[in-house]
Simulated scan of single mutants.
Amino acid sequence: MTQIEYYFTTISPFTYLAGNRLEQIAEKHGATITYKPLDIMGLFARTGGTAPGERHPNRQAYRLQDIRRTAARLDLPVNLKPMFFPANPAPSSYAIIAAQKAGGGDLGGLVHAILRACWAEEKDVADDGVIRAALEQNGFDPGLADSGLLMGAEAYGANLEEAVARGVFGSPTYVVGDELFWGQDRLEDLDLHLAGKI
């Protein structure tokens, strides 16, 4: 069975804009997904990236246009300047890591619920109540927000190291074997790759 390794941060607008298309593609091709949330600022620092707020104003302005247009094309609600951005992505990442280990719920739904909370619902994804609600809405024990902290912190750090070693430099990145697909706008390429067409 084909494995998709999914490297992302829970505060990325472009990861939010992927919606549930990754999960649909994986189901279509009988592939499995391993969700690997990571520290995006740490990834930028290690791979030559720049935090959005530190980029040239031209780049910042274009980024907002691109987010707005993409959200409209995909019919996804979006707030271009969310109240709680950038939030600390670690607590929500730890919860995703714990939920993946526990199993039994909708992991893709959980990831998208957290991203939607930031980019469409004006919620703080570092807030325990927001995380617990997302866990419960997607079939997980909300207590995972508290019980998986140590394991989550260790896996979160390991995901960053692994991402750097694999050639990842941004979020979202989908990895199949040695093939990397960076950005939600490369999901079509991922689909074609899994179909053996590219």
Results as ranks from 00 to 15, higher is better:
Leu160Ala: 07
Gly139Trp: 11
Phe181Tyr: 07
Gly53Ala: 12
Leu192Lys: 15
Leu80Ile: 12
Pro82Met: 10
Asp178Val: 08
Tyr62Arg: 09
Tyr62Ser: 05
Gly170Ser: 10
His112Ile: 09
Arg73Val: 13
Ile67Asp: 05
Ile97His: 07
Thr2Phe: 08
Gly152Arg: 04
Ala95Arg: 05
Thr9Lys: 01
Glu162Phe: 00
Asp178Arg: 12
Ala165Asn: 09
Thr173Leu: 11
Glu23Ala: 13
Gln60Glu: 05
Asp106Ser: 02
Ile114Trp: 02
Phe140Lys: 06
Ile67Arg: 06
Gly167Ser: 06
Glu162Gln: 11
Ser171Cys: 14
Gly196Ala: 00
Ala31Lys: 03
Glu54Ile: 00
Cys118Arg: 12
Phe44Gly: 02
Arg116Val: 04
Pro52Leu: 03
Ala26Tyr: 01
Pro172Asn: 03
Ala61Gln: 14
Gly183Val: 01
Ser12Cys: 05
Val168Asn: 03
Glu23Asn: 08
Ala72Asn: 12
Gln184Val: 00
Ala95Gln: 07
Arg132Leu: 08
Ala133Phe: 00
Ala145Met: 10
Phe169Met: 02
Glu23Thr: 08
Lys197His: 14
Asp185His: 03
Asp191Pro: 06
Gly139Asn: 10
Asn138Trp: 08
Leu80Gly: 07
Lys197Ser: 14
Pro86Asn: 04
Asn58Val: 01
Gly42Ser: 02
Leu74Cys: 02
Tyr16Ile: 04
Met83His: 15
Gly196Leu: 02
Ala26Gly: 04
Asp185Val: 00
Ile198Lys: 13
Leu115His: 07
Ala72Gln: 15
Arg68His: 14
Ile25Cys: 01
Ile96Asp: 06
Ala26Glu: 03
Pro13Thr: 03
Leu107Lys: 02
Leu194Cys: 06
Val175Lys: 07
Glu161Ile: 09
Ile40Ala: 07
Gln24Lys: 12
Glu5Ile: 03
Phe44Val: 01
Phe140Gly: 11
Lys197Tyr: 14
Val78Leu: 09
Asn138Thr: 15
Tyr6Val: 08
Val175Gly: 09
Ile4Arg: 04
Phe85Asn: 11
Gln24Pro: 00
Leu74Asp: 01
Pro37Arg: 01
Gly48Lys: 02
Thr34Trp: 00
Leu149Phe: 12
Gln137Ile: 00
Asp185Ser: 03
Gln137Phe: 00
Gly30Gln: 09
Pro13Ile: 03
Gly177Val: 04
Trp182Gln: 02
